[in-house]
Amino acid sequence: MLWKEKYELGVPLIDEQHKELFQRVEAFMKVLRSSSSWEEKVEQVNETLAFMNAYVVEHFRDEEEYQEKIGYPGSEEHRRIHNDMVNFVLTVTREYESSGYEEQLMQRFAGKLMAWLINHVAAEDQRIAAYAIEKGVAGHD
């Protein structure tokens, strides 16, 4: 699995959401890489896309609420990064639907999604954890 213990922030709700996101994105990649025909894959791909559209918004909201609660000074910048990702997911979804469910678009999207998730959780989100530890508020959610 692509999830690593070092990605944990020590905030149970957010850690569970991150694990769920990693599992979903990993499963998405497996479907896309499988030897099945696109017609066989498209239903699962559409389900994953629908999940991502809903879940990233929910997860980002929870993460932003936690940042506010602990007084994280980088919360505005972090919110901007989240908004950019939400807009990216929405844009790709619209493009995908208007293209008639084009496979290559999903292949590119999956790669970007995975890279973003790892980089964001391993770098940006770790800053929140470091701040929480420094302020003595780690582990609260």
Rank of each mutant, 00 (worst) to 15 (best):
M1A: 11
M1T: 12
W3H: 04
K6H: 05
K6A: 06
E8K: 14
E8I: 08
V11L: 12
P12S: 11
D15Y: 02
E16K: 15
H18Y: 00
L21K: 09
Q23N: 09
R24S: 05
V25G: 01
E26F: 13
M29A: 07
L32F: 03
L32R: 06
S34H: 03
S34W: 04
S35G: 12
S35F: 08
E40Q: 13
V42R: 10
V42Y: 02
N46M: 15
E47L: 11
E47G: 09
T48E: 08
T48R: 05
A50I: 11
A50E: 14
M52Q: 04
Y55E: 07
Y55V: 05
E58Q: 15
H59N: 08
F60D: 13
E64N: 11
E65F: 13
Y66F: 12
Q67T: 07
K69F: 13
G71V: 04
P73E: 02
S75E: 15
E76H: 14
I81K: 12
I81A: 10
I81W: 02
H82Y: 03
H82E: 06
H82T: 06
N83V: 02
M85I: 10
V86N: 02
V86D: 02
F88A: 07
F88N: 02
F88T: 03
V89M: 01
T91Q: 13
T91E: 15
V92D: 00
R94C: 04
E95G: 11
Y96Q: 00
S98H: 06
S99A: 13
G100K: 01
G100T: 05
Y101A: 11
E102I: 02
E103L: 00
Q104I: 06
L105P: 03
L105M: 05
L105F: 02
M106K: 03
M106Q: 06
M106S: 02
K112I: 07
L113Y: 09
M114W: 11
M114I: 09
L117I: 05
I118H: 09
N119K: 12
N119M: 08
H120N: 00
H120E: 00
V121Q: 08
A122S: 12
A123L: 12
R127M: 14
A129R: 12
A129M: 03
Y131L: 01
A132F: 04
I133V: 14
H140A: 15
D141W: 15
